[in-house]
Amino acid sequence: MGKFSGFAVTLRHMFRKPVTTQYPKEVREKPVRFHGRHVLNRYPDGMEKCIGCELCAAVCPAKCIYVRGKDNPPGNPVSPGERYGYVYEINLLRCIFCGLCVEACPTTAITMSNMFEFSVTDRNQAIFTKEHLLVGEDGKPNRKLGVEADVTADALEEAGGWMRATAPGGNANFKEEVLWSPEAGVGTRLPEGVADNHPRDIGADTRSPEGRVEQ
């Protein structure tokens, strides 16, 4: 009998439902903490969250992130505060999708989406720049044409840049809480002592961007 006991396992499996899904016809639901490709988020008012602090680049074990900051243009600030991410590039061929960048980010600017369908024919195509990483004004991720799979608008909604696996306390339902921002750190008063008798022509910061300070 011993020699037939092995076949019992085979027989048992013949009547089971197969685990294979017919990708790409069928799309499996991804877990909430899925580590897909990164997105750069915006505040509800459209301002970019990234402040170009390079902490993501510093913590990245694969050294796949390149960031450079710059002074916010006084008339038309890109992000709240003095500095914004002027260059933001991730080489997704090098990325190991560990999510340390998400943990390091002081403004939850970088999070991981559930978008994973990209294939490249040229190594340069694997470098995602700010243009592709930054979510649109509507909060939906941009798709890098020719590299990322064609998906429906719903799927993009699904892929939104919410904080996922690495939310403080590990709460997968965590939604959008600013950890560090000028508001969170320093309150909402206008700067004091704004006197006119000192030189300030370099003045990166005579602006008061909407949503940053209450007028």
Partner: peptide, 14 residues
Amino acid sequence: EEKRHYEKPIALSE
């Protein structure tokens, strides 16, 4: 409590 605020940054020189 709320922190002290000043305009930032100001140019001391060029």
